[in-house]
Write a protein that binds this DNA or RNA. Sequence first.
DNA 1: GTAATAGTGTCTTTGAGACACTATCCC
DNA 2: GGGATAGTGTCTCAAAGACACTATTAC
Lengths: 237, 237
Amino acid sequence: MNKQDKKYLENYSIHDFDIPLTSVDMVIFAIIDGELNVLLVEREEAPQQGFLALPGGFIDLQKDEDITATAYRKLYEKTGIKSPYLEQVESIGNKNRDIRGWSLTVLYFALINRDKIKGQKSQNSQWLPIKKALQQNLAFDHKVLIEKAQNRLREKTLYTALPVELMPELFTLTELQTIFETILEKKLPIKSFRRRILNANILHPTDKSKLSGKRHAQLFKSTGIDREYYFPRTLVL
Amino acid sequence: MNKQDKKYLENYSIHDFDIPLTSVDMVIFAIIDGELNVLLVEREEAPQQGFLALPGGFIDLQKDEDITATAYRKLYEKTGIKSPYLEQVESIGNKNRDIRGWSLTVLYFALINRDKIKGQKSQNSQWLPIKKALQQNLAFDHKVLIEKAQNRLREKTLYTALPVELMPELFTLTELQTIFETILEKKLPIKSFRRRILNANILHPTDKSKLSGKRHAQLFKSTGIDREYYFPRTLVL
DNA sequence: GTAATAGTGTCTTTGAGACACTATCCC
DNA sequence: GGGATAGTGTCTCAAAGACACTATTAC
């Protein structure tokens, strides 16, 4: 910091500026009973007390080094998971989204494998299938936020293997395909899907199998590189 | 607003919360002499007075309906352009990026056609080729912000026709290809490039031509749908 | 004609889509 | 054997890459 800046800082107060209320909100996705679910919490305080809302809140200017830390902290508080797939979606800010006035939120989405959720889920949080969640009377503009996150997930599912992050330790290709199909809301041709995934080299085959219907299906596990993997071609909706 | 919220609001003050200083910053791209340039302004006030910085600033809680409005306002102030291509890149927030304390910026990038710039460019703003810009001693973390915007533009150039937004009214396919190549920092095979662009149906051929070297090259103009256009396949770097 | 740039023809390769086919296992 | 699910063989098609080729015009 130079001298001039030091001098400036002595006379500076953040209250000299009109700044918006700033928060972080999170859409946490998991697969439950083969369906895409999101985690919602009931608001314990005004405003919008009692309404269902996305996990989120304010940045802790002392604890949080950066905005990503805020997101991870919120996620850990709600799920006990430390290294989920986390991605910033967009920031939404306007006059009307919060009764307290001009407000800005940085929206994230996370993909978690529900088997990994540790310990106590707080009593006031609940998983809802995304369709049901969108039918609730949600706090603030959280319906729109969920839709934005869902769209991002859907778009990325067209050209990445991201949905693998939602799967349990071991899973069959048919199970994975079903998740892709739920996210995309579209049936995929089985042959292409298997070729696409298998050529990607992002899954380890195991010698285990699972009885599904009448025949055993081979179980696979993720190599963990799916977070980065881009398929050579994009699917078309 | 319900009764409970009304009551809550009566006792509410934004100063009860510790919130970060929040701003908007913009990387404005244009082609000048066949090179990708960015617009920088010299900071007129502390902090970091005298340093080159990205156009940007605080949200005007009175004037700006939403965060996009802030971005458009800043862009108009600097360039006089009302409907550029504008896209939100990411929000960056941490303890250290601004000496005033925890600060968050919403980063945008804009693509403009320099022929459209109206009226007075303010004396303290200047265009710099992106390479040179990155070598300057820039204010705050603006070097990183430029790199993030450049990466976003590069990625999108692999699968969209976005660079068309940078072109003047009329241009040749070779000129367009050169811009693609500058952004991607990679030569593209001429035949594939022309096929890709022409099959996309996003350009109108004109009966005009331009002498370039020894032979005339046909001039094209944008149909304006390039903002949305996704090529069927992604290029590979 | 030569140099320089614009623009084409056409073969190969890759991966998606269609669709009929086979394999395994429980009952 | 029947039913249900897993999984394959193989043809077609679209678009990218390679690369040799032709076209136009100033000089």
